[in-house]
Nucleic acid binder design. Structure first.
Length: 114
RNA sequence: CAGGAAACAGAAGCAGUCGCGGACAAAUUUUUGUUCGAGGAAAGUCCGAACUCCACAGAGCAGCGUGCCGGCUAACGACCGGUGAGAGUAAUCUUGAAGAUAGUGUCAUAGAAAAGGAAACUACCGAAAUUUUUUUCGGCAAAGGUGGAAAGGUGUGGUAAGAGCGCACCAGCUGUCGGGUAAUCGGCAGGCUUGACAAACCUCACGCGGAGCAAAGUUGAAUAGGAAAUUGUUGAGGUUGCUCGCUGACAUUUCGGGUAAACUGCAAAGACUUGGGCGGUAACGCUUUAAGCAAGAUAAAUGACUGCAAUAAACAGAAUUCGGCUUAUCGGUUUCCUGCCGG
């Protein structure tokens, strides 16, 4: 139950809708945009802006967030679409810290499963 | 032992658990298995090409690039060899190195004078005047002073004092002879001499059409766009900046849809890589003799954790593909040079 196939990742056109309609929540490591839109619920995406640094760093941040989501997805509700955006604090952190940030920000957004 | 330079190869592996992308196969409609899965710079986008479209690409002017000579290459501003210049005791290293006698221009401040051969502040020499002091006229450019640079340099003769004024050597220029494919080098002769800047304009030689894979093509829902023919306006837009030339907007008629997306381009294949043989000082070429090439996404795959001999590290992530250059950086190996100590 730890799989994360590609079909769950958002497409290019769908990003704008989430950014426009979603609500944002933040903590030290991660910002999330949450929206409830038909056909897109349950889908997720990971992003890292150019502020963070070069391509290697942005790749690493996205991989960290994806791994953290993959291991904890059963704790998160599947009836909404989420975009995870990495922040500076995530650059030097290991996996356990990334998981901590992810659960913290999800708790603030109240999308943790009961 | 310390420091410096150059070259070479590498940039992590194995096991377990979870996970991702492509291909193939099975099963069958969603799984299972096998296999492959970032770099030396993938980066910067600084050059050169392939490929695609625009007249398969045209003319003139403008503009841009290159700039010792020869070679090499698909091509190049890259690379190799040589020459000159510069640095160094040397090994060796560096080098944007055409033309200043085609012309125009610039050379601040200082200095008497900063560009055709001119000029004279102090000084030196001669003459005249004058009571010593000094003044005027003439000669000179050796010495001083200014400057990044003062109109060849050093020595000697010469002279009232001086001066290429004469001579010797050196540097440069012109001519000529010889070596070299050439840049250029060496010898001889001549008259004595011509500042620097072309990374100022410019001159000369050679080269350059433009846009780029978000190119371009195919299939294809709606709103609609496209193709062909004819006549006319003298004419939209495009083709590099301009002028030509080319193309043909719009109107009418006829045919009849082609935007979002998807697929192709796009990855097992070619200017390929390594080794052998042959040619060449080398860059490189020939040979087919041997071996090897298998990433291909589109919010974008190659990751996480644990363990194993070290703490696995630095710079850093493919996006149409090649040849170079530049920049970033980890730990090694080899060779050469320098310094110190010992023999």
């Amino acid at each position: 139950m730890f799989e994360l196939p590609k079909s769950k990742i958002l497409r290019k056109q769908e990003f704008k809708k989430i950014y426009a309609q979603g609500k944002s929540f933040a903590c030290r490591g991660i910002v999330i945009y949450v929206a409830r839109i038909e056909n897109l619920n349950g889908k997720i995406a990971f992003a890292a802006g150019k502020k963070l640094g070069c391509a290697v760093i942005r790749n690493r941040v996205k991989r960290l967030m994806r791994e953290a989501y993959r291991l904890n997805q059963n704790k998160i509700r599947q009836d909404c679409a989420i975009i995870f955006v990495g922040r500076m604090a995530l650059i030097d952190s290991k996996l356990d810290l990334a998981e901590k940030y992810l659960l913290e920000v999800c708790k603030r957004a109240k999308i943790l499963a009961e």
